[in-house]
Structures are given as structure tokens and as C-alpha cells.
Write a protein that binds this DNA or RNA. Sequence first.
DNA 1: CGACGCTTTGACACAACTCAACAACCGTGG
DNA 2: CCACGGTTGTTGAGTTGTGTCAAAGCGTCG
Lengths: 235, 235
Amino acid sequence: MDTNFDSALARKLNAFVELSKDELGVLADLQSKRCEIKRGHEVTHEGQAGQKAYILQSGWGCSFKMVPNGGRQIIRFPIPGDCVGLRSILLRTSDHAFSVLTDSVVSTLETVRILDIFNEFPRLGAAFLWAISRDEAMVVEHLVSVGKRSAIARAAHFFMELAERLRLVGLATETQFECPLTQYLIADALGLSPVHLNRVLRQLRERRLLTVACGNVTIHDIGSLRELSGYHSVD
Amino acid sequence: MDTNFDSALARKLNAFVELSKDELGVLADLQSKRCEIKRGHEVTHEGQAGQKAYILQSGWGCSFKMVPNGGRQIIRFPIPGDCVGLRSILLRTSDHAFSVLTDSVVSTLETVRILDIFNEFPRLGAAFLWAISRDEAMVVEHLVSVGKRSAIARAAHFFMELAERLRLVGLATETQFECPLTQYLIADALGLSPVHLNRVLRQLRERRLLTVACGNVTIHDIGSLRELSGYHSVD
DNA sequence: CGACGCTTTGACACAACTCAACAACCGTGG
DNA sequence: CCACGGTTGTTGAGTTGTGTCAAAGCGTCG
């Protein structure tokens, strides 16, 4: 079998424990059922029953919920190596929708196998749990942002966290990364109007903290950003 | 062994699957190590290392994070039958603080035992996972509230959800429940100022939707509340 | 009975939203 | 190759929901 042992998820889990050859093999096998998805396609619908879980291999995703009046709250932007939909395998219906923002590759996950892994490869299982816990801690932190931080701190925090997540899978340097998110998307994640977010981004640029342009984010002053946003990494 | 087979958690899990005598026994055993905690005591501190997980047996709790400028974002108010701190057993440090608002009884959880249960009593394990997934879906819904709903819809949604959670463990009727939360606490959960929340509560009262007074919440018009808040239960 | 914690109300300020228009860019098709 | 519509970004002007400050009412408990 020609499974590639390297994957974004493997890189991420390696930050928790160094995985053995065997464990890497199991992990690769788990992700072997791949599937390409075109930009803009909605993979899981909110309220859908019997949905699957996925691991994003490449591309950017978007988990969100709609509210009655047409608003949309984006929960997170899954990036390569992120699991999607694990939570809802036991709920009767999916608790949120998932679509991909760029042409992407996902692998579908046999949820039954996950439980086997916990038994047979407990270290790998623990790493998995770590990654999931980390994601949930980020949702909580997101809630803190939207509930208690000013617009500019919110934006700063968002990019700090995003940068760290991308670094973990090798998609960002210390100061820069590619980012296909439009201002509309970011605004819907941060609970701001697109117009206001635009002004906030301008402020960040004018204060020489961070520039977002042409699908690229550049961090100019990580210290000030950290102070402004109150960011500190989860571990 | 004089363990009591009835517990808030047992009542909650029974809503997912009916548990056998054996399973109820295991569940009771798991919760047998009890401990009383005085009102206002902070059980887990944010950033604390090596923290435990708990099941709240009686009383109300409060999970929260502080932000640098002194603000506090309340994540959720654990009620009897809720697990606390399960997520952070694999993160090096607790991702949020936990304190109790009333004199409470908690049982400390041997996290190792949980994994055993998954193997030996998979139905019980699944019920556990269901409960945890449900809690996480609620955090997501909370994020939606704070990010996208108006103050009054947020408040309405909050009480609708709270009522349903309490009903699940037998602590609320269709239209009423006891609630020791102050307006300061609720405001910090909803990302509103206490003053504004007070006005919002007045509106809810004047529109004959819901009254909160003397530690009691009474629901007058559940239909209108549901429409106003966009609430629908997780399942 | 005073002190404290919680609630309620008013007046005012401001952060963020809405509406509106325009500019820049892109892919598409004529 | 250029014209076109659609998407995204930018900016201005005016509005409004919510926050802040301040003070008073009201229980309760020591």
C-alpha cells in the first residue's frame, strides 16, 4: 500500500508526542480514503442526520451556523490536519454546517476505527484527544474574544491564533502566511460587520502591527499584538 | 457499598439510553468519591497544571476565563449532572477556571476509569460521549448567541437553554425553575453589561415573555421566546 | 441598625452598524 | 482583445444598540 506517512495531521500530532513508525502507519491508513471537493461546496449541512467525520488534508474550510435573520456565525476555519464533525457523531443531527472555501482534499473517517485505535495504540489515541481538546479550547477562546474583547483586540487575537495553528502544520513562518479568507468571512467569525472589520484592519496596518493584503498576512510586531490581544497559546 | 443509584448524571444519561442495573452501578461507583465545596470557592484555576475532572452533584457552578483588563467571560454554568474539566486533562494546563456559586457537592473523577468504561461498558461510554458532545454543542451555540444575536434574543436563548438543561435532570418544570444567578453573572456570560442586561430583563418581563425574580425564573410565553431567540434544542 | 450586595433607573458617550457609493480586481464570454 | 458582471475591498456620513457613570432603592444578614 502506497500510503504517504507524512500528513498535516501527523505533523500536528508530532508536536504532542513523537509518533513511532507503526503509529504513523495507522494514522496514514486512517486517512487513506481521500476525496476532492470543489471550492464553495457545502460538505455537511446543519441539522443533517447521520453525518460523517472528516480530516482536512489540504485547503481551507469553514464551520458555521446560520441564524434565523440571515446572519452567519463562523465557528472556525479548519485548515489541513484539522478534524471536522467528530463531535456530532453522537448527536442525532449535525450541530453546524461545514463547507470548503478553496478546492480541498478531505479524508472521511471511520469513526468506529477511532475507538479501536484508543485500545490498540493508546499513545496515538491520546494524541488525537489532545488535538481535539485543543480545538475545543480554541472555540472557548473564540467565545471569550467575541464576548469580551474590543474589535481590534479580537482581530489581533484571531490572526495570532491562526498563525500558530498554521505553524503547527508547517503552513506559516514566524511572521507570514497565506490566507484565502475574505473580510466578509473574517467579519462573520469575529461577530463584526465587514465594514467595521475593514477599518480595524486598516488600524492594524497603520499601527504597523499586521498587514493583510493579496491573500497574505504579515505580522510586523508580534509583541504588541500579543499584548493588544491578550493572546497566549494553548498547550 | 451504599452507593445511591440515582444521580443527576444518571437521569441525564437515561435520556440518551436507558441504562441497565449494572451500568447504573458502575456510574454510581464512578461518582462515589464526593466532596463538599463552599459557595464562592474556586475549584480550578486557569492555567493550573495537573487538574482533575469533576461531576457536579448538587449546586451551581461557573466556568470562566478572565481577560487582561479585568473582564470575565463566563463559558457556562454547570448544574448537577454536568462534567467539568474533562477537556483539559490532556492539555498541560486548564483552559479555564471553575468555581461554585452555591454550596455544592462534587465528585472527583478518575479519568483513567473513564477509558476502562469505554471498553467494558460501551453503551455507558457512548452515553458519556453524548453528554460531552452536547455540552460542546452548547458552547458553540453560546458563541453564536454572543456573536450574532441581539441582547434580548441572547437573554431569551440563554434561559431557554438553561430551562431545558435543568429539565433533563429534573430541576425545572415546563415553565419554572430556581436560579441563583445574579444579573452580573448572567451579563458576564452573555457579553453584556449588567446595566443593559437589567433593561433587557425588564423588556422580557414587560413583553410578558419571561420573569426573573427572587431567584426564580418563570416562562410565560415559550412560543414567542423560541421565535425571538431562534432556540431549538440539541439532540 | 448599619453595611453590604444586588437591582433599578436616568443621562450621556461611544463603539460598532447600516446605508451608500465607488474602486479594484477577477474570470468569462463575446 | 476588450467589455462585462460579480466579488471584494475601501471610505464617508449618519444612526443606534450597548456601555459607562452615577445615584438611589431594597433586601438581608451580622
